[in-house]
Protein backbone atom coordinates (compact mmCIF):
# COMPACT_ATOMS: atom_id res chain seq x y z
CA UNK A 1 0.00 0.00 0.00
CA UNK A 2 2.69 2.33 1.00
CA UNK A 3 4.64 1.43 -2.07
CA UNK A 4 1.66 2.10 -4.21
CA UNK A 5 1.25 5.52 -2.71
CA UNK A 6 4.85 6.42 -3.33
CA UNK A 7 4.77 5.24 -6.89
CA UNK A 8 1.54 7.11 -7.48
CA UNK A 9 3.08 10.23 -6.06
CA UNK A 10 6.16 9.90 -8.26
CA UNK A 11 3.85 9.68 -11.21
CA UNK A 12 2.08 12.83 -10.03
CA UNK A 13 5.29 14.84 -9.99
CA UNK A 14 6.34 13.54 -13.36
CA UNK A 15 2.95 14.35 -14.79
CA UNK A 16 3.07 17.84 -13.35
CA UNK A 17 6.51 18.44 -14.84
CA UNK A 18 5.34 17.20 -18.18
CA UNK A 19 2.31 19.41 -18.13
CA UNK A 20 4.37 22.38 -17.03
CA UNK A 21 6.62 22.12 -20.02
CA UNK A 22 4.07 20.94 -22.52
CA UNK A 23 5.66 22.78 -25.45
CA UNK A 24 9.02 21.04 -25.14
CA UNK A 25 10.16 17.70 -26.39
CA UNK A 26 10.04 15.93 -23.07
CA UNK A 27 11.37 12.39 -22.97
CA UNK A 28 8.95 9.52 -23.02
CA UNK A 29 7.62 9.06 -19.54
CA UNK A 30 9.56 5.85 -19.04
CA UNK A 31 12.94 7.63 -18.88
CA UNK A 32 12.37 10.65 -16.69
CA UNK A 33 15.36 10.73 -14.38
CA UNK A 34 18.10 13.00 -15.76
CA UNK A 35 21.36 11.30 -14.77
CA UNK A 36 23.87 13.11 -16.94
CA UNK A 37 23.89 16.05 -19.31
CA UNK A 38 26.00 18.69 -20.93
CA UNK A 39 24.10 21.81 -21.89
CA UNK A 40 27.26 23.47 -23.30
CA UNK A 41 26.51 26.71 -21.52
CA UNK A 42 30.05 27.78 -20.65
CA UNK A 43 32.12 29.28 -23.45
CA UNK A 44 35.60 27.87 -23.92
CA UNK A 45 37.00 24.35 -24.08
CA UNK A 46 34.73 21.38 -23.41
CA UNK A 47 34.27 20.42 -19.75
CA UNK A 48 37.17 18.08 -18.82
CA UNK A 49 35.02 16.55 -16.10
CA UNK A 50 32.58 15.32 -18.72
CA UNK A 51 34.68 14.62 -21.80
CA UNK A 52 38.05 13.24 -22.90
CA UNK A 53 39.59 13.57 -26.37
CA UNK A 54 40.81 11.15 -28.96
CA UNK A 55 43.85 12.79 -30.61
CA UNK A 56 45.53 11.91 -33.90
CA UNK A 57 44.75 9.53 -36.74
CA UNK A 58 44.22 6.34 -34.78
CA UNK A 59 47.70 5.14 -35.78
CA UNK A 60 48.78 6.14 -32.26
CA UNK A 61 46.71 3.28 -30.89
CA UNK A 62 47.39 0.90 -33.78
CA UNK A 63 44.17 1.77 -35.57
CA UNK A 64 45.15 4.03 -38.53
CA UNK A 65 42.17 5.85 -40.05
CA UNK A 66 40.29 4.72 -36.93
CA UNK A 67 39.70 1.42 -38.70
CA UNK A 68 37.58 3.06 -41.40
CA UNK A 69 40.13 4.73 -43.71
CA UNK A 70 39.14 8.07 -42.24
CA UNK A 71 41.36 10.97 -43.33
CA UNK A 72 41.19 13.45 -40.46
CA UNK A 73 43.63 14.22 -37.67
CA UNK A 74 41.72 14.75 -34.41
CA UNK A 75 42.88 17.64 -32.25
CA UNK A 76 41.68 19.43 -29.13
CA UNK A 77 42.44 22.88 -30.59
CA UNK A 78 39.69 25.51 -30.47
CA UNK A 79 39.81 25.56 -34.28
CA UNK A 80 38.33 22.05 -34.15
CA UNK A 81 36.35 22.03 -30.93
CA UNK A 82 34.98 24.69 -28.62
CA UNK A 83 31.89 25.73 -26.69
CA UNK A 84 30.44 29.03 -27.79
CA UNK A 85 27.04 30.67 -27.60
CA UNK A 86 25.47 27.78 -25.75
CA UNK A 87 26.60 25.25 -28.35
CA UNK A 88 29.33 22.69 -28.79
CA UNK A 89 31.11 23.35 -32.09
CA UNK A 90 32.98 20.44 -33.70
CA UNK A 91 34.61 21.72 -36.88
CA UNK A 92 36.21 19.71 -39.67
CA UNK A 93 38.81 21.66 -41.65
CA UNK A 94 40.78 21.12 -44.84
CA UNK A 95 44.36 21.84 -43.77
CA UNK A 96 47.72 20.12 -43.68
CA UNK A 97 48.32 18.98 -40.13
CA UNK A 98 50.86 16.40 -38.93
CA UNK A 99 50.71 14.58 -42.27
CA UNK A 100 46.94 14.62 -42.63
CA UNK A 101 44.93 16.76 -45.05
CA UNK A 102 42.03 17.36 -42.69
CA UNK A 103 41.50 18.09 -39.00
CA UNK A 104 38.50 17.54 -36.78
CA UNK A 105 37.61 16.55 -33.21
CA UNK A 106 36.21 13.62 -31.28
CA UNK A 107 35.13 13.64 -27.63
CA UNK A 108 34.14 10.75 -25.39
CA UNK A 109 32.77 10.24 -21.87
CA UNK A 110 34.88 7.10 -21.47
CA UNK A 111 35.93 6.68 -17.82
CA UNK A 112 33.89 9.73 -16.81
CA UNK A 113 30.34 8.63 -17.51
CA UNK A 114 29.35 5.11 -18.50
CA UNK A 115 26.04 3.42 -17.94
CA UNK A 116 23.70 0.66 -19.01
CA UNK A 117 20.22 1.45 -20.35
CA UNK A 118 18.47 4.80 -20.55
CA UNK A 119 17.43 7.48 -22.97
CA UNK A 120 20.40 9.12 -24.71
CA UNK A 121 19.50 12.23 -26.67
CA UNK A 122 21.25 15.13 -28.34
CA UNK A 123 20.00 18.17 -30.21
CA UNK A 124 22.25 18.64 -33.23
CA UNK A 125 22.50 20.75 -36.37
CA UNK A 126 24.57 18.76 -38.82
CA UNK A 127 27.12 19.93 -41.40
CA UNK A 128 26.97 18.87 -45.05
CA UNK A 129 29.09 17.98 -48.08
CA UNK A 130 30.60 14.95 -49.78
CA UNK A 131 32.77 12.94 -47.39
CA UNK A 132 31.59 14.52 -44.13
CA UNK A 133 30.71 11.87 -41.54
CA UNK A 134 29.38 13.15 -38.19
CA UNK A 135 28.16 10.77 -35.51
CA UNK A 136 26.55 10.63 -32.07
CA UNK A 137 27.19 7.13 -30.73
CA UNK A 138 27.82 4.83 -27.79
CA UNK A 139 30.59 2.31 -27.32
CA UNK A 140 30.76 -0.48 -24.75
CA UNK A 141 33.45 -0.70 -22.06
CA UNK A 142 36.36 -2.91 -23.14
CA UNK A 143 37.26 -4.12 -19.60
CA UNK A 144 40.76 -2.64 -19.77
CA UNK A 145 41.37 -3.93 -23.26
CA UNK A 146 40.40 -7.53 -22.56
CA UNK A 147 37.27 -7.39 -24.75
CA UNK A 148 37.59 -6.09 -28.29
CA UNK A 149 35.17 -4.55 -30.74
CA UNK A 150 32.63 -5.63 -31.85
CA UNK A 151 32.17 -7.84 -28.79
CA UNK A 152 32.01 -4.69 -26.61
CA UNK A 153 28.95 -3.47 -28.54
CA UNK A 154 28.29 -0.23 -30.37
CA UNK A 155 25.08 1.79 -30.61
CA UNK A 156 25.08 4.44 -33.34
CA UNK A 157 22.32 6.81 -32.34
CA UNK A 158 22.98 8.98 -35.38
CA UNK A 159 25.32 8.62 -38.34
CA UNK A 160 25.04 10.83 -41.40
CA UNK A 161 26.58 11.19 -44.82
CA UNK A 162 27.18 14.83 -45.70
CA UNK A 163 26.21 14.09 -49.29
CA UNK A 164 22.73 12.95 -48.16
CA UNK A 165 21.45 15.92 -46.16
CA UNK A 166 17.97 14.48 -45.57
CA UNK A 167 18.93 11.03 -44.25
CA UNK A 168 20.41 9.71 -40.98
CA UNK A 169 21.16 6.16 -39.90
CA UNK A 170 20.75 4.34 -36.57
CA UNK A 171 22.64 1.07 -36.05
CA UNK A 172 23.99 -1.47 -33.60
CA UNK A 173 27.20 -3.46 -33.96
CA UNK A 174 28.02 -6.67 -32.10
CA UNK A 175 29.67 -10.03 -32.66
CA UNK A 176 28.50 -11.37 -36.05
CA UNK A 177 26.72 -8.14 -36.94
CA UNK A 178 29.31 -5.42 -37.31
CA UNK A 179 30.59 -2.97 -39.94
CA UNK A 180 28.79 -3.74 -43.22
CA UNK A 181 26.59 -6.30 -41.47
CA UNK A 182 25.41 -4.02 -38.68
CA UNK A 183 21.72 -4.00 -37.83
CA UNK A 184 20.63 -0.65 -39.15
CA UNK A 185 17.77 1.50 -40.34
CA UNK A 186 17.54 4.93 -41.88
CA UNK A 187 15.30 7.91 -41.30
CA UNK A 188 14.55 10.37 -44.07
CA UNK A 189 13.13 13.83 -43.51
CA UNK A 190 10.41 15.03 -45.84
CA UNK A 191 10.58 18.69 -46.79
CA UNK A 192 13.41 19.41 -44.36
CA UNK A 193 17.14 18.82 -44.01
CA UNK A 194 19.43 17.92 -41.16
CA UNK A 195 21.89 20.72 -41.95
CA UNK A 196 19.56 23.69 -41.73
CA UNK A 197 18.16 23.40 -38.20
CA UNK A 198 18.44 21.39 -35.00
CA UNK A 199 16.99 17.91 -34.72
CA UNK A 200 16.85 15.66 -31.66
CA UNK A 201 18.43 12.23 -32.08
CA UNK A 202 17.74 9.66 -29.36
CA UNK A 203 17.73 6.03 -28.37
CA UNK A 204 15.69 4.53 -25.56
CA UNK A 205 17.54 1.44 -24.46
CA UNK A 206 16.40 -1.20 -22.03
CA UNK A 207 16.68 -4.95 -21.52
CA UNK A 208 16.44 -6.69 -24.92
CA UNK A 209 15.45 -3.60 -26.91
CA UNK A 210 16.78 -0.36 -28.35
CA UNK A 211 14.32 2.19 -29.79
CA UNK A 212 15.60 4.79 -32.28
CA UNK A 213 14.05 8.27 -32.48
CA UNK A 214 14.36 11.41 -34.59
CA UNK A 215 12.50 14.41 -33.15
CA UNK A 216 10.62 11.99 -30.84
CA UNK A 217 9.38 9.94 -33.77
CA UNK A 218 10.12 6.26 -33.18
CA UNK A 219 11.44 4.88 -36.47
CA UNK A 220 13.08 1.61 -35.49
CA UNK A 221 13.18 -0.92 -32.67
CA UNK A 222 16.02 -3.45 -32.51
CA UNK A 223 15.72 -6.53 -30.30
CA UNK A 224 17.68 -9.79 -29.93
CA UNK A 225 15.42 -11.25 -32.62
CA UNK A 226 17.13 -8.91 -35.10
CA UNK A 227 20.58 -10.37 -34.44
CA UNK A 228 19.40 -13.95 -34.91
CA UNK A 229 21.69 -16.53 -33.41
CA UNK A 230 24.31 -13.91 -32.62
CA UNK A 231 24.94 -12.67 -29.10
CA UNK A 232 23.02 -9.62 -27.82
CA UNK A 233 25.72 -7.63 -26.00
CA UNK A 234 23.59 -4.76 -24.76
CA UNK A 235 22.13 -6.05 -21.49
CA UNK A 236 25.14 -5.98 -19.14
CA UNK A 237 28.01 -3.84 -20.37
CA UNK A 238 28.32 -0.13 -19.57
CA UNK A 239 28.52 2.25 -22.53
CA UNK A 240 30.02 5.72 -23.00
CA UNK A 241 29.04 8.58 -25.34
CA UNK A 242 31.01 9.78 -28.38
CA UNK A 243 30.56 12.85 -30.59
CA UNK A 244 32.76 13.38 -33.64
CA UNK A 245 33.05 14.36 -37.28
CA UNK A 246 35.09 12.03 -39.47
CA UNK A 247 36.27 13.15 -42.90
CA UNK A 248 36.27 10.51 -45.61
CA UNK A 249 36.25 6.84 -44.77
CA UNK A 250 34.42 3.75 -45.88
CA UNK A 251 30.96 4.96 -44.88
CA UNK A 252 30.98 8.20 -46.89
CA UNK A 253 33.85 8.06 -49.38
CA UNK A 254 36.43 10.83 -49.63
CA UNK A 255 35.55 14.52 -49.78
CA UNK A 256 35.94 16.10 -53.22
CA UNK A 257 37.04 19.51 -54.47
CA UNK A 258 33.47 20.73 -54.13
CA UNK A 259 33.16 19.86 -50.46
CA UNK A 260 33.01 23.19 -48.64
CA UNK A 261 35.24 23.52 -45.59
CA UNK A 262 35.17 24.23 -42.73
CA UNK A 263 32.13 22.20 -41.74
CA UNK A 264 30.72 22.51 -38.22
CA UNK A 265 28.41 20.26 -36.22
CA UNK A 266 26.52 22.24 -33.59
CA UNK A 267 25.31 20.40 -30.49
CA UNK A 268 22.85 22.22 -28.24
CA UNK A 269 22.82 19.56 -25.53
CA UNK A 270 23.44 15.92 -24.70
CA UNK A 271 21.20 14.38 -22.04
CA UNK A 272 20.91 10.93 -20.50
CA UNK A 273 17.83 9.82 -18.57
CA UNK A 274 17.30 6.64 -16.60
CA UNK A 275 14.03 5.00 -15.61
Amino acid sequence: MKRKLISLCTFCIAATLTWGCGDQNEPEEKFTNLVWSDEFNTDGPVDPERWIFDIGTGAEIGLPGWGNQEQQYYTDRPENIKVEGGMLHITARRESFNGSNFTSAKILTRGLFETTFGRFEASIKLPFGQGIWPAFWLLGNDSNGTVIWPQIGEIDIMEYRGQQPTVIHGSIHGPGYSAGNAVTDSYQLNNARFDTKFHVFAVEWGPDYIDFYVDDELYNTITPADVGSNEWVFNDNTFYIILNIAVGGTFVGPPDDGTPFPQTMLVDYVRVYSE
Partner: peptide, 8 residues
Protein backbone atom coordinates in the same frame (compact mmCIF):
# COMPACT_ATOMS: atom_id res chain seq x y z
CA UNK B 1 11.58 23.69 -54.41
CA UNK B 2 11.85 22.21 -50.95
CA UNK B 3 15.16 21.50 -49.37
CA UNK B 4 17.60 23.55 -51.37
CA UNK B 5 20.01 24.94 -48.79
CA UNK B 6 23.57 26.06 -48.05
CA UNK B 7 23.73 28.94 -50.54
CA UNK B 8 27.34 29.88 -51.34
Amino acid sequence: IENMAQPR
